[in-house]
């Protein structure tokens, strides 16, 4: 593990929310690292804590009710959790850029797209507004917006969803950050537009050595873009590996279930395999392994019901938090059925 290649290192991050109904451990001991010029994807279902992880890195968690209880977030060796708000504001934008799921609500409707990019640039750089304008138009070209000089003076509502997301990317990249956090960047977009945006992110990464933290629920998006994947379930990373390895041989029963439950192009009508039950309520996580209530292997195993497994390196570079993942293959076949009756 060579440290000079690592840009971001998150260790044992815990972010909790204190609500009326109790403490929600939204992120509970998450660790990962992102190398320069690489893409790390956090995959998981709604409420698994993947977005909270991203917001914790940016320190944009609303406090209260949220609180980063423990852990460390190092960007290029610098501990971000020790910084005060002013220093952190400098990091946001200039070191870490962020794009969101819904490009309409993340752009201010009363300002032109151009002026919003200019503002982002001038927040971190002392340059004249004319230079900033030139830079902004240059950015619009980079993100593939046709007729950039005209688009500069248009308002967000005049642009289509895909164009707005491009503007968001231009803004996020305006100060040449080293890390881009993309929180469900294509979820609100159509497939043809999604393909365009993912392609754009790849091109930008290749040309600027950008590191990307990709947050998504869509395994298919991950397959085409990420180098390393962490699968999150109930506030923890339950499996982590290189993309190729993870897709070739998912070890955690949850990951396995996810793969089997998505319909794929080219597969004919058949029963999909399902993961039974629903995502557990973060106020009321089951004891032991949090997945055991939905797991066809661990449901009745005493160890799974009482002891929580930790991430361990099951194969070289392939980490998994499951007591039974070594014996997984055989167990999967003996699973009787998932018929809904």
């Amino acid at each position: 593990m060579s440290d000079n290649g690592t840009l971001l290192r998150v260790s044992d991050l815990r972010t909790h929310f204190h609500t009326e109904d109790g403490v929600v451990k939204a992120v509970d001991g998450v660790s990962f690292r992102i190398d320069r010029g690489r893409t790390f994807a956090l995959v998981g279902e709604s409420g698994c804590g993947k977005s909270v992880t991203a917001f914790s890195i940016m320190q944009l968690i609303p406090i209260p009710p949220g609180r980063i209880v423990s852990g460390s977030i190092e960007l290029d060796g610098e501990e971000l959790l020790d910084l005060n708000e002013k220093q952190m504001r400098h990091i946001r934008g200039s070191q870490i850029g962020m794009i969101f799921q819904e490009p309409m609500s993340s752009l201010n409707p009363v300002f032109t797209c151009g002026s919003q990019i200019v503002e982002a640039i001038r927040l971190h750089r002392r340059i004249s507004s004319r230079d900033a304008r030139a830079m902004a138009i240059d950015l619009l070209v980079q993100v593939g917006i046709p007729e950039p000089a005209q688009r500069f003076d248009e308002y967000p509502h005049q642009l289509s969803g895909g164009m707005r997301q491009r503007v968001m990317i231009a803004m996020a990249l305006s100060c040449r950050p080293r890390l881009l956090i993309a929180d469900e960047p294509t979820t609100a977009l159509d497939v043809t537009i999604q393909a365009q945006i993912l392609e754009l992110l790849k091109e930008l990464q290749a040309s600027t050595q950008l590191s990307i933290l990709l947050i998504t629920h869509d395994l298919a998006v991950v397959a085409g873009t990420a180098d390393v994947v962490g699968v999150m379930y109930a506030s923890k990373i339950v499996e982590q590996a290189d993309t190729g390895q993870l897709f070739a041989e998912p070890l955690h029963p949850y990951t396995h279930g996810l793969f089997r439950s998505i319909p794929r192009l080219g597969e004919k009508k058949h029963r999909l395999e399902t993961i039974p039950g629903t995502v557990p309520n973060p106020l009321n996580f089951p004891a032991g392994c949090k997945f055991h209530t939905r797991c066809h292997i661990g449901r009745d195993k005493p160890r799974c019901r009482t002891q929580e497994p930790t991430l361990r390196e099951v194969r070289p570079g392939h980490w998994c938090a499951c007591w039974e993942c070594d014996r997984y293959e055989t167990a999967a076949q003996s699973d009787p059925s998932d018929k809904v009756t």
């Binding site: 039974p276 039950g277 629903t278 939905r294 059925s337 998932d338 018929k339 809904v340 009756t341």
Partner: peptide, 14 residues
């Protein structure tokens, strides 16, 4: 099976 899990959950906790 999904039903089974849900039903038991309801009866126990809710």
């Amino acid at each position: 099976m999904s039903d089974l899990v849900e039903t038991t959950r309801v009866e126990q906790f809710e």
